[in-house]
Design a protein around this nucleic acid. Structure first.
Lengths: 186, 186
DNA sequence: CATCTAAAATAACAAGTGTTATAAAAGAAT
DNA sequence: ATTCTTTTATAACACTTGTTATTTTAGATG
């Protein structure tokens, strides 16, 4: 009937997503994606109405990527929110550009930080319930404090002002939880 | 001898700085500054070699602006780092674009976060000494923890995920210091 | 008032952006 | 093999950016 497509929507999206990881969301332009995919800009506009649609698809893929990253991250900490902190801070270090896209840059029609973090697995709810089960009297407030702390460390990772090892970070997170619980070990 | 200048270097810098505050650093372009200053782009390049020079001048002005803002901020908190936290979080709320420029965006030849924060007045050193005088055994580590916390809250202010009142923020900061000291009030 | 010099305005260049019109090509169907 | 349809490539449009060449203009000096 007609010519067979050689550049699929998957090719375009995968290329744009890889570019976001490696070069940052800001560099995902029509011509750059085309060059990296080895085609002209035309196939992009065949499968996406415009660049906004592609950017949104990249954003959604980044959300999924983060949630997979989080769910696969090893859970070695005992204190509530410590594993959450480890995963988020590691993500900020290893996926700078994705972290910036998901948690810092204020773009149009983006999901809230909480929505991205909690995800389908209910990551936040899980940690809150864990805290409650361990005797935390106000787990919501505990989440707020721990998240402010985790988020601060993650953002400082991007600026280069936070550079502790995984072991040190785990200690910091565990101690912080104990401190906020009123059981500071000092 | 010659024609008198009608657009001074101060006009240009003040215009560019106001634009940064109101519209963000990213919008400081040659043509936009010129339009707002009511002239062509030519006077800009008479007083500045190129846009990079102007951007750098704007950045330095933002540093001074922050340090003045900090030094004029009322000191009502008793716990070390609480007044620092109040000033930085208020700055993030009231001067979003300047906060982003100074503390988030990773531009060329920028000062470190610590340098901006500490300033000529030695803001950080002051708080560390205060903590030491109040019996803090490791004031350096205390600064790290408190700054991570303050920075997290400030960055979340920008994304809209932190919106506590000044009173609530002060309580949070005072309690955090007590928590990290091992004197949690709960 | 005429002249001269520096400042400002105008216009252009080269490079980048999203997007679209048009032309070429590939390949299935007849 | 020819036809036809869709995909892809090529070019172009309109807009933005920093920067510079050229022209105009303001105003002090003689």
């Amino acid at each position: 009937m007609a010519r067979k497509e050689s550049i699929t929507i998957q090719n375009i999206l995968d290329t744009a997503f890889s570019m976001t990881r490696e070069e940052g969301f800001i560099n995902v332009t029509a011509r750059k994606v085309a060059a990296r995919a080895g085609c002209s800009t035309q196939p992009i506009f065949r499968v996406y109405k415009n660049m906004d649609e592609l950017w949104n698809a990249v954003y959604l893929k980044a959300v999924s990527f983060f949630q997979d990253y989080y769910s696969l991250y090893p859970r070695t900490g005992k204190a509530p929110f410590s594993n959450m902190g480890m995963a988020v801070i590691a993500f900020a270090r290893e996926e700078r550009n994705l972290f910036e896209l998901l948690f810092i840059s204020q773009n149009v029609h983006r999901k809230s930080m909480y929505e991205v973090l909690n995800g389908d697995a209910g990551n936040v709810v899980y940690e809150i319930n864990l805290a409650k089960s361990l005797g935390c009297t106000n787990p919501q407030e505990m989440f707020m404090k721990m998240w402010i702390f985790i988020y601060g460390a993650a953002c400082m990772t991007l600026t280069g002002d936070y550079d502790l090892s995984d072991r040190e970070t785990m200690e910091l997170l565990e101690h912080s939880y104990e401190s906020f619980s009123g059981n500071a070990a000092r």
